[in-house]
Amino acid sequence: MPRNPTAAANESAVMRAETRRRWSLALPALTVITLCSILPLGVMVAYSFMEAGQYGNVQWGFSLEGWRAVFLDRDFFDDSYIPATAHLTILARSILLALATTALTFVFGIPTAWFIATRPPATRAYWMFLITVPFWTNLLVRTIAIQEVIRADGTLNRLLLATGLIDEPLQMMFTNGAVLVGMTYVYLPLMVLPVYAAIEKFDFRLAEAAYDLHASRLYCLRRVVLPLMWPGIVAGSILVFIPALGAYVTPRLMGGGRAMMWGNLIDLQFGQGRNWPLGAALSITLTLVVVGAMVWYARRAAKGAETNG
């Protein structure tokens, strides 16, 4: 069919206008992503391949020293390279701490979220407010607040002494336990919020149906409630695990800097260590570990959905 050339021209003009319109609509989002995500990440990657300046910062010039230092230490005496096992220990410690934090926020977060979601709608907002209010406060202030609770002459010890349960104050500060308590406290809302959303969306008539169909409470929990809450639990776990892995304020204040975490290690390079390329390389390493874990989880979940579906 012969086509009218002006009509075709008009059509392509319309399409060009449409394309322009779409790009201009996407522009704010693209700007934010570029400025806040891609650009800083690019700077970090670039820094990790530069030379360290004598008084911090970086100097122009390509260097693999930063990355070398992530994996290999230079022997103090003969300048030979030995594996940087200390970094591995710190990474393992950080992962363990992040996992333990996730597990504890899970243990405390699920009943909390369940409690809130099963309140009458009018009082739910009030409970949610109580859960989120510490979250609006500065992290440092919150950490110091929890210090106040558990230090030797803190609230908890005084309470325990007063009740006669203990004779002398428990030394809780500057232990791994203290770090874990602090981290759990700080990240609890991140677990509660998505789990709460999942429970609130849960149709309790389904639990009734399961109960009607001869399911015990435990069977109903396992076959109906948990599978339907799973996306919320996964979201909460990811939201807690990722920042917990890179946390440095809480481990430092609660642990007294005794047990170094990956976050403190990075902090050190940008501060006293004056080794920005190493700090940048360590940051990228952590990002890669997290992304790797996420990809692994997503693949596994997709495979699980395939076999189940």
Binding site: D203, R205, A209, A210, D212, H214, A215, V224
Partner: peptide, 18 residues
């Protein structure tokens, strides 16, 4: 309910969506 020899067809059906 789980020990009664009685089953229910619910108004909302309440089928397990997963």
């Amino acid at each position: 309910p789980n020990h009664r020899p009685v089953n229910t067809v619910f108004q909302s059906y309440a089928l397990f969506p997963h």
